[in-house]
């Protein structure tokens, strides 16, 4: 496997990068949905972000990357207790994956050869403490998406099937990407992704050339290229780590809460998930940038990504929901 493309070297796409960084700061935000054209660097960004994060410490041989012996699931083979550093896992969930493969199932091999009832962990176990990346999430079968969102929210995978009754930790950040031309995601599912960003191919020729230029440099001289961007990547990593540490101490005043609520009411977003995510994301942004309280500026900057997918669709508004959110933000904060 070659090294992933450095995160900081991705040209443009600031909103997508920002959203991904914020979920790294606070995984509780609940996943990112990236909708956009082909070839805009969606999967590159996910892989790059995971490579940028510090390795996690996990027990050797643990199927769920458990950090301590208590977290190690009791159904798995016992481990030696030694731990090692593993890179933050990024698990790809391919289209057409069966439910068995996703949640895990009875280990047929052991059942048939040894007559034992054992559990074979699925992709969710492997994604624990990392990222689960689904390309073309809009084409994934609805019942799998439902299941994924459930697990992502509860942080636990519960299996009750084929005589097995098993649960294990499955805390991961869900990153879904897709091309809206090929099918929409149901609104119920949209709403359950924390953030949503739209990416477009850059239209500016200079920007496009820069993408190709960096790609060429990366492919021809990977070491030099990685070295060149290492400093910037390290800077982002440090900011993420300090953001994680500071997250608990970021204050959200009543005024900020009021702003959140007013914004969501003005936009007519259904349910309370909008407010909760908006606040949480703003808090993560404040922590990432080292400020100790959530300000209107933070809210303003994260409002489009945390609210644009929760609006009732207005097909007559060609500008898209993100700009609608921005307009409303200006009205409410005026």
């Amino acid at each position: 496997m070659r090294q992933p493309f450095p995160f900081s070297a991705i040209v443009g796409q600031t909103e997508m990068k920002q959203a991904m960084i914020l979920t790294a700061v606070d995984p509780g935000i609940g996943g990112v949905l990236v909708f956009g054209d082909r070839g805009t660097g969606k999967s590159t960004a996910v892989r790059a972000l995971a490579a940028l994060l510090p390795p996690i410490r996990a027990l050797v041989g643990s199927p769920t990357n458990a950090a301590t012996a208590e977290d190690h699931p009791d159904w798995a083979e016992p481990v030696s207790g030694k731990s090692h550093d593993v890179p933050t896992p990024v698990i790809d969930l391919p289209l057409g994956a069966t439910e068995d493969r996703v949640v895990g199932a009875l280990d047929i091999e052991r059942a048939l050869t040894r007559g034992e009832k054992a559990f074979e962990p699925g992709l969710l176990a492997r994604a624990n403490r990392g990222y689960l990346y689904i390309d073309e999430v809009n084409l994934l079968e609805d019942h799998i998406v439902d299941l994924l969102l459930d697990v992502a929210q509860s942080g636990e995978n519960v299996i009750e099937r084929e005589g097995l009754s098993i649960r294990h930790d499955a805390r991961f950040v869900l990153v879904g990407s897709g091309n809206p031309e090929e099918g929409e995601l149901r609104p119920q599912l949209l709403d359950r992704f924390g953030l949503s960003v739209e990416v477009r191919s850059p239209t500016d020729i200079d920007e496009r050339v820069e993408v190709i230029r960096r790609r060429a440099a990366f492919d021809t001289q990977p070491e030099a290229f990685l070295k060149k961007w290492r400093a910037k990547d390290t800077k982002i990593r440090k900011a993420i780590l300090s953001g994680r540490a500071a997250l608990g101490s970021v204050e959200a005043s009543d005024a900020a809460l009021r702003d959140c609520a007013e914004l969501c009411v003005a936009l007519g977003s259904d349910g309370l998930r909008g407010e909760l995510t908006l606040l949480r994301t703003a808090r993560a942004l404040a922590a990432y940038e080292g400020s100790d309280a959530v300000t209107r500026d933070h809210l303003r900057r994260v409002a489009p990504m945390s609210l644009s997918h929760r609006l009732r669709r207005d097909p007559l508004d060609e500008a898209g929901s993100a700009s609608r959110v921005l307009r409303t933000v200006e009205d409410v904060f005026a």
């Binding site: 082909r38 070839g39 660097g41 191919s201 190709i212």
Partner: peptide
């Protein structure tokens, strides 16, 4: 690189893979 990128853009090829 510039030449190829510009040409792709003029043919309306959005993807940067091209």
């Amino acid at each position: 690189m510039i030449l190829l990128t510009e040409t792709a853009a003029r043919f309306g090829i959005g993807s940067l893979r091209a």
